[in-house]
Every structure is written in structure tokens, then in C-alpha cells.
Design a binder for these strands. Structure first.
Length: 280
DNA sequence: CGGTACTCCTGAAGGC
DNA sequence: TGCCTTCAGGAGTACC
């Protein structure tokens, strides 16, 4: 579920709802997700206060004292914030909870348990193995057409697979890679090194555009997320090709009666959706 | 080193 | 209805 826009929306929600309030209770309901919860996490967090909510790639980073609590949502992770008087019956996939002094409750809910939670000293965050080799933020100034062009010169893998590699650029997942390639008119099976300078520039701009649009869509959902059972991570974002096999693709000249609409293939074990008329 | 296949886990959806 | 198979938005590891 969560790619960069989803995690960014979660970050914004955490910033608004749990910063600068003392943690009054912590519950760890099972020993591990993808990896074990940190030793003594309950004791470490008790009575602490988060002072900054950051994000790096698909990781949300909550600073307290001289440490950072890092949360990755995996495929099925969700953050739920309950208001003081919200009710929620016990759920077997609520693995990690924190209560705050104003009565709010943070819940990490993750049925597939591909998510992870770890701690690191804040001043050593960038050296942590999750981040040490991570590529630039796609919305930052270090990610531009020239960077993408340079980095793909020696890549023999497909452009689709290359963009999913977090070492090339951080935070992109299957959905937004499919959408960005469609928007740019680049076929997902093209070798990464075959991108022209112009295509790299265009692809880079479209990645930024689509991520910002998705964050904005998440943001508008966020405004009333409390009504929706307090869950963050749902997005009303209109995909052009993702999960649209057989549908007509928007703003395309192709004739669906001839092409059969959006096509689906598998690359590196992941589904890719595209239009072979628009994407060359 | 680069690239691919496999793996963790549960739940939803579709076929029969 | 129910049983079975397939697939899912991630990413670390093993192996060529």
C-alpha cells in the first residue's frame, strides 16, 4: 500500500497529532513484524516526547531525545490515530500502540507484517543500513533529469525495474512507476540505458508531478480522516493505468477495439500496466 | 558488481 | 456457500 505519497501523508498526520505530547503508555503486542521490535522499546519510549516527524523514502522517522523511531509500513501497514473518545475494539493486527497525554492513541496495524520498526541515534540516521545506500528524494533538488540520465547509463535492466530500486531514487513503488512511465510515454521494458537525455528529463519531471498530485490527494483525504475510523493511508487518487488492465487509457489515441486497452505484464515478479500505443 | 528469483505473511478476490 | 488458487502497493537475501 504505502509508497512515498502515502508515507508523506502519514508523516503529516503524525506531525499534527502526536508531536510534542508525552507518551503515557506503550504496548507491543507481538515480538516482531518483519524484524523484531527493538529490545526494551516499551521502556525506552515511556514518558518520552516526539519532537519531529520526518520521512526518508518510504520510512517515517519520529525524533525524540537523541534517538529516532523509524517506521516502515511494508505492503499492508497502516497508521491509525484515535481521538480521545474514539472506540476501537481489539484487532489482532494492531501490533504497536502508543497513548499520549492528550488522550490520542497511535496504532500500527499491519496484517501481513512486512513492516518494520527500529531505533537509531538521530545523528547516525544516514549511516543506518536502511538509509546508507538510499538514493535521493525524488522531490528534492538532487533528483533531476541529468541525475537520472547519468545513473541509468550503465543499467542494463528495464527502466521499470531500475526505478523501483531504492538506491537509484527513494520512495517510488510499483504504482507510481507505472503511472510515471505512462505519463512520459516510455515503454516499461525499455533498457534503462536507452533513455535519451530528453526522456530522462521528462520522466523526472513527471515523477515529481505525479508524486505531488498524489500527496495533494492524500492531503485532502487527511482533512477528515477521523470520520473514516481514524485511519490514514487511503487515497482517492485516479490512476491512469495501474490495475486498469483492459480499460481505455486516458488521453491516448489508441483504439481500444484494436489494442484491448491497458496491457499487463510481469517484470521482476511485479505487475506492470502500460499502453503499448502511447509507450514506446 | 549487476541482475534475477525467492522469501516472509495474511486477506481479498475469483474460479469452480 | 465453501473450498481452492492466485495475487497484492516491499525489500532483504541467496545465488548466478
Amino acid at each position: 500500500m504505502p509508497e512515498l505519497p502515502e508515507v508523506e501523508t502519514v508523516r503529516i498526520g503524525l506531525e499534527k497529532d502526536i508531536l510534542n505530547r508525552k507518551i503515557t503508555r506503550v504496548a507491543i503486542n507481538r515480538p516482531d513484524l518483519r524484524i523484531p521490535f527493538p529490545d526494551n522499546l516499551t521502556e525506552i519510549l515511556q514518558d518520552q516526547t516526539f519532537t519531529l516527524a520526518g520521512r526518508r523514502g518510504k520510512y517515517a522517522c519520529l525524533q525524540f531525545a537523541d534517538q529516532t523511531l523509524v517506521i516502515h509500513l511494508g505492503m499492508s501497514g497502516r497508521v491509525i490515530i484515535l481521538a480521545k473518545d474514539d472506540d476501537r475494539s481489539a484487532n489482532k493486527h494492531d501490533h504497536f500502540e502508543m497513548d499520549f497525554e492528550d488522550g490520542k492513541r497511535f496504532i500500527l496495524h499491519d496484517p501481513r507484517r512486512f513492516g518494520m520498526v527500529f531505533l537509531t541515534r538521530t545523528d547516525a540516521l544516514d549511516q543506518h543500513k536502511a538509509f546508507a545506500a538510499m538514493g535521493p528524494e525524488p522531490l528534492g533538488n538532487n533528483f533531476d533529469g541529468l541525475y537520472l540520465y547519468d545513473k541509468t547509463r550503465a543499467k542494463k535492466t528495464s527502466i521499470k525495474t531500475a526505478l523501483l530500486d531504492q538506491r537509484l531514487v527513494a520512495g517510488l513503488g510499483n504504482i507510481y512507476v507505472c503511472e510515471a512511465l505512462f505519463m512520459t510515454g516510455v515503454h516499461p521494458e525499455r533498457k534503462a540505458y536507452s533513455l535519451s537525455k530528453t526522456e530522462a528529463e521528462s520522466l523526472c519531471q513527471n515523477i515529481k508531478k505525479i508524486l505531488l498530485a498524489a500527496i495533494n490527494a492524500g492531503g485532502s483525504t487527511l482533512k477528515d480522516y477521523r470520520k473514516a475510523n481514524g485511519e490514514m493511508g487511503y487515497f482517492q487518487f485516479n490512476f491512469s493505468v495501474y490495475d486498469k488492465e483492459g480499460s481505455p487509457c486516458p488521453d491516448c489515441t489508441c483504439d481500444i477495439n484494436k489494442t484491448g486497452g491497458v496491457e499487463k505484464i510481469v517484470q521482476s515478479g511485479r505487475s506492470t500496466y502500460y499502453c503499448s500505443t502511447k509507450q514506446k
